[in-house]
Amino acid sequence: MILILAITIGCLFAGGFYLILRRSLVKLILGLILLSHGVNLLIFTMGDGVRRGAPPIVDKNGVAPINVADPVVQALILTAIVISFGLTAFILTLAYRANQVTGSDDLDSMQGEG
Protein backbone atom coordinates (compact mmCIF):
# COMPACT_ATOMS: atom_id res chain seq x y z
CA MET A 1 0.00 0.00 0.00
CA ILE A 2 2.74 2.45 0.97
CA LEU A 3 4.51 1.73 -2.32
CA ILE A 4 1.42 2.55 -4.38
CA LEU A 5 0.95 5.76 -2.41
CA ALA A 6 4.61 6.69 -2.84
CA ILE A 7 4.38 6.25 -6.60
CA THR A 8 1.14 8.25 -6.73
CA ILE A 9 2.64 11.08 -4.72
CA GLY A 10 5.72 11.07 -6.95
CA CYS A 11 3.54 11.29 -10.07
CA LEU A 12 1.50 14.14 -8.59
CA PHE A 13 4.65 16.09 -7.70
CA ALA A 14 6.25 15.45 -11.08
CA GLY A 15 3.10 16.49 -12.92
CA GLY A 16 2.64 19.50 -10.69
CA PHE A 17 6.18 20.79 -11.18
CA TYR A 18 6.02 20.15 -14.92
CA LEU A 19 2.85 22.23 -15.17
CA ILE A 20 4.29 24.99 -12.97
CA LEU A 21 7.25 25.33 -15.30
CA ARG A 22 4.97 25.92 -18.30
CA ARG A 23 4.35 29.48 -19.44
CA SER A 24 0.58 29.28 -19.43
CA LEU A 25 -1.13 30.74 -16.39
CA VAL A 26 -3.91 28.15 -16.29
CA LYS A 27 -1.37 25.33 -16.36
CA LEU A 28 0.52 27.01 -13.53
CA ILE A 29 -2.62 26.99 -11.41
CA LEU A 30 -3.38 23.36 -12.31
CA GLY A 31 0.17 22.52 -11.31
CA LEU A 32 -0.32 24.18 -7.93
CA ILE A 33 -3.50 22.16 -7.41
CA LEU A 34 -1.73 18.88 -8.26
CA LEU A 35 1.07 19.81 -5.89
CA SER A 36 -1.35 20.43 -3.02
CA HIS A 37 -2.99 17.04 -3.64
CA GLY A 38 0.43 15.42 -3.59
CA VAL A 39 1.24 17.05 -0.24
CA ASN A 40 -2.06 15.93 1.26
CA LEU A 41 -1.36 12.33 0.28
CA LEU A 42 2.16 12.65 1.63
CA ILE A 43 0.87 13.77 5.03
CA PHE A 44 -1.62 10.90 4.86
CA THR A 45 1.18 8.36 4.52
CA MET A 46 2.91 9.90 7.51
CA GLY A 47 0.06 8.75 9.75
CA ASP A 48 0.25 5.06 8.99
CA GLY A 49 2.04 4.24 12.18
CA VAL A 50 4.86 2.57 10.25
CA ARG A 51 7.48 4.44 12.17
CA ARG A 52 5.85 4.67 15.56
CA GLY A 53 3.57 1.64 15.57
CA ALA A 54 0.59 3.39 17.11
CA PRO A 55 -1.35 6.64 16.74
CA PRO A 56 -0.63 9.27 19.42
CA ILE A 57 -3.93 8.81 21.25
CA VAL A 58 -4.74 7.06 24.50
CA ASP A 59 -7.95 6.30 26.32
CA LYS A 60 -8.80 7.44 29.84
CA ASN A 61 -6.52 4.83 31.41
CA GLY A 62 -3.56 5.82 29.28
CA VAL A 63 -3.81 2.72 27.04
CA ALA A 64 -3.47 3.11 23.28
CA PRO A 65 -6.57 1.77 21.52
CA ILE A 66 -6.10 -0.83 18.76
CA ASN A 67 -7.38 -0.64 15.18
CA VAL A 68 -7.55 3.15 15.23
CA ALA A 69 -6.06 5.39 12.56
CA ASP A 70 -3.97 8.45 13.42
CA PRO A 71 -6.43 11.34 13.81
CA VAL A 72 -3.72 14.03 13.77
CA VAL A 73 -2.84 13.58 10.10
CA GLN A 74 -6.51 13.65 9.18
CA ALA A 75 -6.89 16.94 11.00
CA LEU A 76 -3.78 18.29 9.26
CA ILE A 77 -5.03 17.22 5.83
CA LEU A 78 -8.46 18.69 6.47
CA THR A 79 -6.84 22.01 7.38
CA ALA A 80 -4.55 21.88 4.36
CA ILE A 81 -7.45 21.06 2.03
CA VAL A 82 -9.50 23.98 3.27
CA ILE A 83 -6.56 26.37 2.95
CA SER A 84 -5.59 25.22 -0.52
CA PHE A 85 -9.24 25.38 -1.60
CA GLY A 86 -9.47 29.00 -0.52
CA LEU A 87 -6.15 29.94 -2.11
CA THR A 88 -7.05 28.18 -5.35
CA ALA A 89 -10.32 30.08 -5.51
CA PHE A 90 -8.42 33.34 -4.94
CA ILE A 91 -5.72 32.70 -7.53
CA LEU A 92 -8.32 31.62 -10.12
CA THR A 93 -10.18 34.88 -9.60
CA LEU A 94 -6.93 36.81 -9.81
CA ALA A 95 -5.95 34.99 -13.00
CA TYR A 96 -9.35 35.74 -14.50
CA ARG A 97 -8.99 39.44 -13.69
CA ALA A 98 -5.41 39.52 -15.00
CA ASN A 99 -6.57 37.83 -18.19
CA GLN A 100 -9.32 40.43 -18.58
CA VAL A 101 -6.87 43.30 -18.12
CA THR A 102 -3.93 41.99 -20.14
CA GLY A 103 -5.80 39.81 -22.63
CA SER A 104 -3.13 37.16 -22.27
CA ASP A 105 -2.59 33.78 -20.65
CA ASP A 106 1.18 33.88 -21.13
CA LEU A 107 3.17 34.67 -17.98
CA ASP A 108 6.14 35.99 -19.96
CA SER A 109 4.07 38.63 -21.67
CA MET A 110 2.78 39.87 -18.32
CA GLN A 111 5.58 42.19 -17.40
CA GLY A 112 4.90 44.54 -14.55
CA GLU A 113 5.20 47.78 -16.49
CA GLY A 114 2.55 49.26 -18.71
Binding site: I20, L25, L28, I29, L32, L35, S36, V39, L42, I43, T45, M46, G47, R51, V72, V73, L76, A80, L87, F90, I91, L94, A95, R97, A98, V101, T102, L107, M110, Q111, G112, E113, G114
Partner: peptide, 29 residues
Protein backbone atom coordinates in the same frame (compact mmCIF):
# COMPACT_ATOMS: atom_id res chain seq x y z
CA UNK B 1 0.86 46.09 -12.82
CA UNK B 2 -0.69 45.05 -9.53
CA UNK B 3 -2.55 42.11 -11.03
CA UNK B 4 0.42 40.70 -12.92
CA UNK B 5 2.85 41.35 -10.07
CA UNK B 6 0.30 39.96 -7.62
CA UNK B 7 -0.05 36.74 -9.63
CA UNK B 8 3.67 36.06 -9.41
CA UNK B 9 3.64 36.94 -5.73
CA UNK B 10 0.75 34.57 -5.05
CA UNK B 11 2.09 31.70 -7.16
CA UNK B 12 5.63 31.76 -5.74
CA UNK B 13 4.36 32.09 -2.19
CA UNK B 14 2.03 29.13 -2.71
CA UNK B 15 4.96 26.99 -3.86
CA UNK B 16 6.91 28.09 -0.78
CA UNK B 17 3.97 27.22 1.48
CA UNK B 18 3.69 23.81 -0.18
CA UNK B 19 7.33 23.11 0.65
CA UNK B 20 6.67 24.13 4.24
CA UNK B 21 3.71 21.75 4.36
CA UNK B 22 5.79 18.88 2.95
CA UNK B 23 8.44 19.55 5.58
CA UNK B 24 5.85 19.64 8.38
CA UNK B 25 4.30 16.38 7.16
CA UNK B 26 7.67 14.65 7.00
CA UNK B 27 8.72 15.91 10.40
CA UNK B 28 5.47 14.60 11.86
CA UNK B 29 6.28 11.22 10.34
Amino acid sequence: AQLTGGLKYVALNLIGSTMFLIGSGLIYG
